[in-house]
Write a protein that binds this DNA or RNA. Sequence first.
DNA 1: CTGAAAGCGCTTACAG
DNA 2: CTGAAAGCGCTTACAG
Lengths: 352, 352
Amino acid sequence: MTRRRRVTIRDVAQAAGVSTQTVSRVLNDRPDVAPETFDRVQRVIADTGYLPNMLARGLTQGRTHTLGVVAYGLEYFGPSRILTGLEQAAAATGYSMSLTLIHRPETEDVDEVLAGLAGRQVDGVIWAIPEVASNRSWLRARASAMPVPLVVVGGTTGEDLPPSIGIDNRAIGRLATSHILDGGARRMAIVTGPLDWWEARERLAGWRETLETAGSRPSDGLIFEGDWTPSSGEEGLYELLRRTPDIDAVFASNDQMALGVMHAAHRLGLRIPDELSVVGVDDIAEGSHFWPPLTTVQQPLSEAGALAVEVVVRAIKASRPGRHSEDTHLRRVNLLQPTLIVRQSSRQVTPG
Amino acid sequence: MTRRRRVTIRDVAQAAGVSTQTVSRVLNDRPDVAPETFDRVQRVIADTGYLPNMLARGLTQGRTHTLGVVAYGLEYFGPSRILTGLEQAAAATGYSMSLTLIHRPETEDVDEVLAGLAGRQVDGVIWAIPEVASNRSWLRARASAMPVPLVVVGGTTGEDLPPSIGIDNRAIGRLATSHILDGGARRMAIVTGPLDWWEARERLAGWRETLETAGSRPSDGLIFEGDWTPSSGEEGLYELLRRTPDIDAVFASNDQMALGVMHAAHRLGLRIPDELSVVGVDDIAEGSHFWPPLTTVQQPLSEAGALAVEVVVRAIKASRPGRHSEDTHLRRVNLLQPTLIVRQSSRQVTPG
DNA sequence: CTGAAAGCGCTTACAG
DNA sequence: CTGAAAGCGCTTACAG
């Protein structure tokens, strides 16, 4: 299948009997074209199926209307939702998306990823990698060297880092923990995510804070470090019960680990929620049909993605020549609030 | 933050005291450069942090090393795995990925999506949209009008359609059904996906075929059409039992619906697998920790994504001038085989 | 082994 | 309202 040469602006100009300049005016909807000329050119464009070459346009205009997105772990719930939010907001704003996936969140060879995006002349970069280990510190150096704005989604950033959009993960821990306390729990354990993840540490901190405020002692024996998988949740409950047999509630830092905890409870013959309250995080689609249906904390993930696009697009516009306004309306750290979803895996306040 | 002007090939040439032409030779690793010159230029490149502008390169070379990917339903298991496979294979082959998400699989306004990709000069397109309703028929017309190769992943295509990579969904139905029959089921129902989906119809056909071969009658009363969600699985079991009270096994066309079926069974006090065998499809991460752990059929999804990249890249190379070889080594329809994963939700063959 | 010229397909000032 | 010229940042023949 031989592909024929593509139609160019010259072909259109020739067919319409005008200069390429005039065709360009029509393409860009400039006002100063005679209505008659406009129509004629438009007709030729439709007839020939002409499509402007965006490479050429990008080369002359110095912008590509493309956002570079660097993400990790599309197979997980959070990242895939964030990405969906990103893509839709980008499309709605007229940007297309160049996606690069990272294999490990704490990887260090992202220099070439950023270089690749810069070489492809993206107008801005959205960094959708969770904060793990020290992967934020090298981002600092890289981000300032980038020729275009960069925004982080999925965590927080400090003073000298790019703007960020994240979920208030400490609030997640507080919401889950107070709900469990309200249900009358006397001994609440936690299965955390990997503690080199910021999100995992924050959820733990929220749990700890809330317990302390309530006058309870969040001892280390009540903490089990999982790895986000159902298996680690299962293992977690076994281990926690071994250490502290009278546990009557578990806050699992995601729904998959909560499922593992419930699985272990079933094996041990522990009734949920009567003997063990279980609360997760994420609100995965399966949660409402677990046995029993899982109480969980929902995060506004696609909203975070959408906001990231909004912020980076605003930064792009602010950085264009002719506009040297301070970006005061750009908050640097944005934290969105989670929502508790109560189902049957947690004991409720008993009236009276 | 004012961004300084980017370094161009001219800057490098000037600093190294050579022509841009020579710099270009170094960039592209051409052999005919004096070693000394090569080193000098390379050093300037490193010092200045020069990055070739890919737009300019694409404009002159007529290729962008970018693949356009059109996908649907990233929040679902299948699509997200396929996308992961796609991205990794693309990256490994030196291609970057321009991602567009569709909101409904049977949508008709994808003309502008394809036009957008063509305008951005992608070297090839991967169409990762499931076959729903008549969305393949309009693809036919569009695909042949595309100036670059297009490959479909996630279904099959006919004679006059682009090459396709898919999973053998009929085999999925057969695998699940024979496994259930082997376990001694006497009355097996099915909860299908939406029947305007090719995958759903094929899994149903595999179920039907297998039952017929076994001498059983796959009556319509044993078929419930779900919508892939856990809720529809739950509703499905209630309805099926109403119609046929002696059902002792259900093949659910995905794991989420299988979860819904198990949920309904728990509510009804039906023991799994003793009174009801349940088998799903997908092998989602949660399945191994359902109660009981779910028997399921796994699909090689990321392999399908990787193969799609391989096929489209081969087509790209074949379509480049100077190479008019028939693409005989390119099978047009590729069907990958699924694998059964046996856990505890299905009755096993009892020896003796 | 190296460079001057032309061109990829557009848009941006600049004239008229 | 419209066009001739120059240029975006590269690479591709073509000379030497």
